[in-house]
């Protein structure tokens, strides 16, 4: 089974669109992508219990990489790890990668059958193609 991916965002629309974009790059491929986005009323916000549920749903035993936007998404993703079972927690990586670029990199790698650490590394490298193309080193400018 491919490594599972979870997208955490304040915005349901943003998360769904990022997943749609990613699926568009992998036509016909099976992807285990979960979304935990928006608050309980459908507004902007994050919910650690929803993230924990999404992690459990995409976890096939081969690991899960969680991508997130910013602020409370990061705090909620960390809090979610306190809510999942111990054995699941050990299989989860919270990625500091940029959400869109990281998700695409992770999904392409996961669909190719790479293991969790490889998928997480590719997510982290997500900005590299854009940086190389635009000639702007990371963290400057």
């Amino acid at each position: 089974m491919p490594v599972g991916l979870v997208v955490v965002s304040h915005s349901r629309a943003l998360a769904d669109a990022a997943v749609e974009l990613t699926r568009g790059m992998l036509p016909g491929r099976e992807l285990a992508v979960g979304v935990a986005a928006g608050d309980v009323d459908g507004g902007l916000g994050t919910d650690a219990t929803a993230i924990a549920d999404a992690i459990a749903a995409v976890d096939s035993g081969d690991g899960v990489v969680v991508l997130m936007d910013l602020g409370s998404a990061v705090l909620s993703a960390e809090t979610a790890l306190e809510l999942v079972d111990d054995d699941v927690r050990e299989r989860v990586v919270l990625s500091p990668a940029p959400l869109v670029e990281g998700l695409v990199g992770a999904a392409v790698t996961a669909a190719a059958g790479a293991d969790r650490d490889r998928v997480a590394a590719e997510a982290l490298r997500g900005l590299a193609p854009k940086q190389a193309h635009l000639g702007e080193p990371a963290g400057e400018g």
Partner: peptide, 10 residues
């Protein structure tokens, strides 16, 4: 954790 939505939730 479930209902606040912002950073004060977690």
């Amino acid at each position: 954790i479930k209902t606040v939505g912002g950073a004060s939730g977690p």
